[in-house]
Amino acid sequence: MANPDHHHDHGGDHAGGSELSDMQLRVRALETILTEKGYVEAAALDAIIEACETRIGPHNGARVVAKAWIDAGFRKALLEDGSKAVAGLGHDSRVGEHLVAVENTPDTHNIVVCTLCSCYPWDLLGLPPVWYKSTQYRSRTVKDPRGVLHDFGVTLPATTKIRVWDSTAETRFLVVPMRPAGTDGWTEDQLAALVTRDSMVGTGLAQPPGKAV
């Protein structure tokens, strides 16, 4: 049973497993209480979930990166004031304050983590994946980022400087990955398809042309 009062060890972060039906019952009961008391309208819960599953997601961030790749003025504005630059794009999901965009270069690779909880630019990238919130990622990234990158199948040159950003406040970080070679003349839409979620967190690279899905 998943209960902080009657704990047993079921090993590591996981999605629910045998806990599922137990949690389903607990959550349903609590929602019933909250709605019967009139604290919250069930339709409001539905609307939030719908937005999380459809409107917000890494496609918003990918557009920002692709635009920065082809528009030098936007790139400069984005690196100077991320929130202001992105607000001008008119996304479906409006992006909140304190967005800081950091750029990968041949010399420096940026990676974002939240060691204390799960801070993530969800309004630009969608809700964080399980690995971002996991004990494994939160514990290791600030100490052994190359080991973490290895878990993602990414190997950087030994001389590349690694910069880890620990999101310990309400600033939120977006990594602008390097533009893949062989994409001269590509449109913003074509380029956006190469920008993976992981590349905007720093645990991946943008896809090379021909590998985009």
């Binding site: 590591g12 994946p129 399980v130 690995w131 996991s134 004990t135 494994q136 990622y137 514990s139 290791r140 100490k143 973490v148 878990d151 993602f152 992981d198 645990t203």
Partner: peptide
């Protein structure tokens, strides 16, 4: 230390 590798899904 000791939590093991990150497991992307």
């Amino acid at each position: 230390d000791g939590f093991g590798p990150v497991k992307p899904e």
